[in-house]
Amino acid sequence: MKPLAIVAFAFPAAFAASAGAQSAPPSSPTPESAELPRPVDRREGNWRLEVGYRGSFVSDSGYQPFSSNGYFPEFSMAASHTLLEDGRFSFAGGLAWDVGSSSSEVRQVDPASLVMQRFTVTLEGRIHFGRWGYAYLRAAPGAAWEKVEVDDAASPAPLEKTNWLFATDLSAGYACLLWPRDAASKVEPRFWLQGEGGYGWVAGQELTLEPALPSGSPVQTTGVDLGALAMQGGFFRVATAVSF
């Protein structure tokens, strides 16, 4: 966790320094030219909610039993709060939840499915372009819950395995302001459309599936080892958001 903590604190620090260099007011303004510094136009409030769609391209061979094309779709939700603001830059922290599943028929006989839920803390640095929206960099460490299941006709119960795994996303994206696009300084609900791309990383695990038998079952069954699975790969996300 230490490197991520460094990232989390490095973003705002860097943005603050950069913002200072670009838009800091004169240190001793003359009375003739004194006027209120023009507020930076971020066009958003302090809170932000996102709902979207995430698609991941998992190249790991361990994912092949569950997908015919290596694509993993997810529903995505996030909430964030702006924590720091400085000039054109801001930093927000939040929580995100992604959930998705994929299924296939292994060797054309056994239904196999994978469900994954990803819970992450989002750390997001933003650079604002007024009514044109903002660009952002996002790091999202967290945990993923994976459930793998294979229904085999010979097994007395579905073969399955569930596991919690460390997960992290690194991504960059852009948020476009949809409406309303005026009233720069006014804090009011605004709607956004955003897209991002990045790399998602989930720790690997060995898929040693065992039949989900009730405890005390007299039936002795040995499961199956499908090999190692690491849900890692590039992803994109498109989302709509509301800020207030």
């Binding site: 391209f57 998992v58 190249s59 061979s61 092949q64 039993p65 997908s67 015919s68 094309n69 290596g70 694509y71 296939s104 292994v106 060797r107 054309q108 006989v109 790969g233 590039g234 994109f236």
Partner: peptide
């Protein structure tokens, strides 16, 4: 192109009938 390349076809061991 990167997205399409990332879409992988499963190995026959997972898809072929027995």
């Amino acid at each position: 192109a990167v997205s399409l390349a990332a879409c992988t076809t499963p190995a026959p061991i997972w898809t072929t009938p027995i």
